[in-house]
């Protein structure tokens, strides 16, 4: 699985496709389904499937495209997303390493929370108009976390039917690592 990134063109092709899917979810689906964060889902699933730190750089490409269409100055959303992906990867390797659907749901919640915290921090650093920003950040995050976590859980259960690696228990993985 760690060699998944030899398929670099496929990963790069996935960037615009996921971006357009994210946009489609926002504009076509009714509330609260429009709050599903497809990009966060993709990042979490990529971390779990590949277990590679290269996912952080892939997040960079994914949110570079997204940052063009955001309100704040260029780089704020991108930086927040990349750092959130980095924290997510470390947490996955160190703490939340279970391969269960609920683990994926928690990971996506962690990613979204860190993404919001870093966004608020960078907006504060850049002295962008702060009035109501924090309130707005955390106002919608609950719904976003809930629907995205549910979405990730469904995807995890679906993918686990086709990818045996997603069904390997934590103990077995530890044994595999020990043998290798």
């Amino acid at each position: 699985m760690k060699h998944s990134f030899i398929f670099l063109p496929l990963w790069l092709l996935a960037v615009p496709l996921l971006f357009f899917l994210h946009v489609a979810v926002i504009i076509f689906l009714p509330y609260p389904f429009s709050e599903i964060n497809v990009l966060a889902t993709a990042v979490v699933m990529a971390v779990i499937i590949t277990e590679s730190g290269a996912v952080v750089w892939w997040t960079f490409c994914l949110f570079y495209l997204f940052d063009w269409y955001t309100v704040g100055p260029f780089g704020l959303v991108l930086s927040a997303a990349v750092l959130a992906a980095l924290v997510l990867f470390w947490l996955y390797r160190g703490i939340l390493s279970n391969r269960e659907f609920w683990s994926a749901a928690i990971l996506v919640a962690v990613f979204l929370i860190f993404f919001r915290i870093f966004s608020a921090g960078f907006f504060w650093l850049r002295a962008v108009d702060q009035s109501g920003l924090i309130a707005s950040l955390f106002r919608s995050v609950t719904v976003e976390i809930f629907v995205t976590a549910s979405f990730v859980s469904v995807w995890y259960l679906l993918l686990a039917r086709f990818l045996p690696s997603l069904k390997v228990t934590h103990a077995k993985r530890m044994n595999l690592y020990a043998k290798n």
Partner: peptide, 13 residues
């Protein structure tokens, strides 16, 4: 060409 892509605001592109 788009709307509400940014989670931080109600916007149009």
């Amino acid at each position: 060409i788009g709307r509400d892509l940014d989670p931080l605001g109600t916007t149009l592109i």
